[in-house]
């Protein structure tokens, strides 16, 4: 279970998070939505300790994460932009992260098959296309099989086939009882994969509830229209 208590964060003069309070029960699949620059990535990075909040605290299973690092063993993270060391080969990168994490897993072969990455294993990361990089990124995120998955825009750059594969993987992980946190701009993807919607607007939580609640509140039958309505009402 993840508990976020009154998180504030500013970068210079820009206040990105203005007091976020949140409970994420174990096994739930939460979609973090919101316009660009609303603080989705900052919130996710705070969970990982990559961003240090100015105020407030984050608890993971009732222990505060405050500058610790061991808790990250239980989290798999997919960064929004796949920045990899360019002069490494794909296989070297996978081996290295495995070694650094001290994890003995052979799950990566399964995901490499799924995303048909075999032809790229001996290519340098710098030479890969955006979509292929994103697939490598996904393999890295899924291969350690941790109980919490944080995915920042997992769909970016993927072709329709890989998108289907990804959807199946995520639904599978959900069935295993993992806690999922996903940010995305593709609404029908979100609708299929997640059950709770967290709408962030200018650093505060604007809506937090299930998809059915959202449709009821906005009096729209269609999820995409409901979100659009939410966005518009936030602007007013």
């Amino acid at each position: 279970m993840i508990t976020i208590e009154n998180i504030h964060k500013s970068f210079g003069k820009i206040r990105v998070l203005k007091g976020i309070d949140l409970d994420i029960p174990k096994g739930s699949a939460v979609a973090i939505l919101g316009p660009n620059g609303s603080g989705k990535t900052t919130l996710m990075k705070s969970l990982l300790g990559m961003v240090v909040p100015d105020q407030g605290r984050i608890l993971l299973n009732n222990t505060t994460i405050d500058r610790g690092w061991k808790y990250r063993n239980g989290i798999d993270y997919l960064p929004q932009i796949a920045n990899f060391p360019n002069n490494l080969k794909v296989s070297e990168l996978l081996k290295m992260i495995k070694d650094i994490r001290g994890a003995k897993t052979d799950k990566e072969t399964y995901y490499i098959d799924l995303f048909s990455l075999h032809p790229f294993l001996n290519k340098k990361l710098g030479t890969l296309s955006g979509g292929t990089k994103q697939k490598v990124n996904l393999v890295l995120a899924f291969m350690f099989d941790s109980p919490i998955l944080i995915l920042d825009e997992p769909t970016s750059g993927l072709d329709p086939i890989s998108l289907l594969v990804l959807k199946d993987i995520i639904l599978g992980e959900k069935k295993k009882g993992k806690t999922l946190l996903i940010s995305s701009h593709i609404m029908n993807f979100v609708e299929k994969v997640c059950d709770t919607i967290l709408f962030i607007w200018e650093g505060t939580i604007y809506f937090n509830g299930s998809i059915t609640d959202l449709k009821k509140n906005t009096k729209k039958d269609d999820f995409e229209h409901a979100i659009a309505h939410l966005l518009k009402s936030a602007h007013d």
Binding site: L48, G49, M50, R67, W69, K70, Y71, R72, N73, I75, Y77, P79, N83, F84, P85, N86, I97, I100, R101
Partner: peptide, 16 residues
């Protein structure tokens, strides 16, 4: 040059 590498490592269970 190793900024990307650092960002990758920061999400792993390693001390900063």
């Amino acid at each position: 040059n190793s900024k990307e590498f650092i960002e990758l490592l920061l999400a792993q269970p390693i001390k900063r």
